[in-house]
Amino acid sequence: MIEAKDLVRQFTSGDRTIKPVNGVSFELGKGQLASIVGKSGSGKSTLLSLLGALDKPTSGDVVVDGVSLAGLPDGKLTEYRRRDIGFVFQQFNLIPNLSAVDNVMLPMEFAGVRTSARAQRARELLEQVQLDPEKQTRRTNRLSGGEQQRVAIARALANEPKLILADEPTGNLDEQTGGHIIELLSSLSRDHNTTILVVTHDRGLARKADRRFRLQQGQLVEEAAAARN
C-alpha cells in the first residue's frame, strides 16, 4: 500500500549536516497497524513528514498504491494529503476558535463535500471517537487534551484516508487517557481496515501492532512482531 524507497532527509545548519533519515526502506500493507519507536531526536517525525508529503526527501521516494510522490507537483501533493492521508499530531493541532464539528468538517470542505453531508458525517465520526454530543459544538480550545485528540482522530478519518500517520498521539496525555486513544486507533485499524503508522513510546500500543519498527542512526529496523490479541 505504501512503500518507502531509500528515503534520505538531510538538514544543514551552518557547516553541520545531519541526516535523521538516512536510507529508510519499508513497505506496509493495507489495514496494518505499525508502530515506530526511537529516541527523541532520532528522526521519527521527520520520517512521518516525508511519508505524508509535509516535507520532501533529499533523495529516495515514497510510492503509494503505485504512484510515486517524487514526481508530483505541489498541487498533487496537496491532493494526496487531502485524500489519502490523515494526520494525528502530538499537539492535536486543531483550529482553536472552531467547534469540534467544524474542525472535522474542514478536510471535507477542502475535498468539496456538500455542506449537509459534511455535518452529518462529522457527527457520525465524533460519535465513533466517543466525544460527548454536547461537546461537539464547543470550541476545541475549551476541550480537554484527550477530547481534543479524539476530535483530531475524527478529523483524520474525515475523508476516509488510506493511511493515518500518528506522531506520538498520546505524548501529551496522561496514561489512562492515552490508553483510550490507543484503544481507539487499534479498533479503527481493525474495523475500518485502515493502515495506521504510529510513532509511540506506549508499550501497550507496541504490543497491539502488526509491525514494530525502531528508528536509530537514520535507519529503520523491524523488530519481531508480537501476536496481536
Binding site: 493541532n93 477542502f110 478529523r155
Partner: peptide
C-alpha cells in the same frame, strides 16, 4: 504560520 501549516497538512489548497 503554524495554523496555516495545519490547514495545508489536512489538504487545504493555497488559494483557499
Amino acid at each position: 504560520r503554524r495554523e496555516i501549516g495545519v490547514l495545508k497538512a489536512i489538504g487545504a489548497r493555497n488559494r483557499t
